[in-house]
């Protein structure tokens, strides 16, 4: 995330993956019981591996669906907003973006609850409402960062507007867009965990239940597994991007 971090870690994805795997290990019932015992907590009713995997799968599914929606809408809107025709609308979009960021995801989940009912839908709505704006801003920032001369050169060699977009603007804005997608991914995993409050069955469920009835082991398991998912997801995204960068001509 930070430039200063680059020289110390050879490949950023590696560090993230190792952290993720350690956290995944902690979420194993045996390890979590051991830690709870070390903290002096009674090791009551740990989640077995099957249940943990089922919860993780649901978590990944919900976060993945949300991330896909956020990516399509955020990048799409970002491209639309940077077209010349949309320039009068930029201040309004920026204002809405700042406003949407001021409503925390928990509050969106809570507000959507009476309208959409318990479960996944309010979580997805919160994810989209809160996640779109960072992706939109990142996309806009990336595309606007493209030097005008390069765009001009593209036009000079006879590229159409669509070609300028797909061959010049998007590839050059790529790193900025990937950076915001990392933020969106972390946000997606976190928001889906909060969705447990609205009755979505995710890795947040054992955390919330554990906090309510003082049951430390499942709480620790859920917390470690959620964090593991976030780290592994980021590692996967980075690995994917660098692999794509390597095979691209």
């Amino acid at each position: 995330m930070d430039r200063a971090a680059q020289p110390t870690v050879r490949h950023p994805a590696l560090g993230l993956a190792v952290t993720g795997l350690i956290l995944a290990g902690i979420s194993h019932p045996a390890a979590a019981s051991l830690i709870a015992a070390a903290l002096g907590e009674p090791a009551r009713r740990p989640l077995d591996v099957g249940r943990l995997l089922a919860l993780s799968l649901q978590h990944v599914f919900l976060a993945g669906a949300g991330l896909a929606l956020v990516t399509i809408l955020g990048v799409g809107l970002g491209i639309l907003v940077t077209r010349r025709a949309a320039s009068p609308w930029r201040p309004m979009v920026d204002a809405i973006a700042a406003g949407a960021q001021a409503v925390p995801p928990v509050v969106v989940v809570a507000l959507a609850l009476p309208v959409l009912g318990f479960g996944g839908p309010p979580t997805l709505l919160a994810l989209v409402a809160y996640g779109i704006m960072p992706v939109l801003r990142g996309t806009v920032g990336g595309i606007e960062g493209v030097a005008p001369d390069i765009r001009e050169a593209g036009r000079a060699v006879g590229l159409t507007r669509l070609q300028i977009l797909t061959r010049i603007e998007l590839p050059l804005a790529g790193p900025a867009i990937v950076e915001t997608l990392r933020t969106a991914l972390v946000l997606a995993v976190a928001t889906v965990a909060v969705g447990a409050l609205a009755g979505a069955t995710t890795l947040g469920t054992p955390i919330v239940a554990g906090l309510q009835n003082q049951n430390t082991v499942p709480m620790l398991q859920g917390a470690a597994a959620t964090a593991a998912l976030a780290f592994l997801g980021e590692a996967a995204l980075l690995a994917l991007v660098s692999a794509w960068g390597a095979i691209r001509p």
């Binding site: 930070d2 971090a5 110390t8 870690v9 952290t19 903290l39 002096g40 965990a193 430390t216 959620t226």
Partner: peptide, 28 residues
């Protein structure tokens, strides 16, 4: 360099998970 890595790492941990972990830790 280390501070950057650790602080960026914290951002990745979901808030609900960090709260749960901290409650267990404070208890211990």
């Amino acid at each position: 360099g280390l501070v950057a890595i650790v602080l960026s790492g914290i951002q990745v941990v979901p808030a609900v998970a960090l709260l749960g972990g901290l409650v267990a830790l404070t208890g211990g």
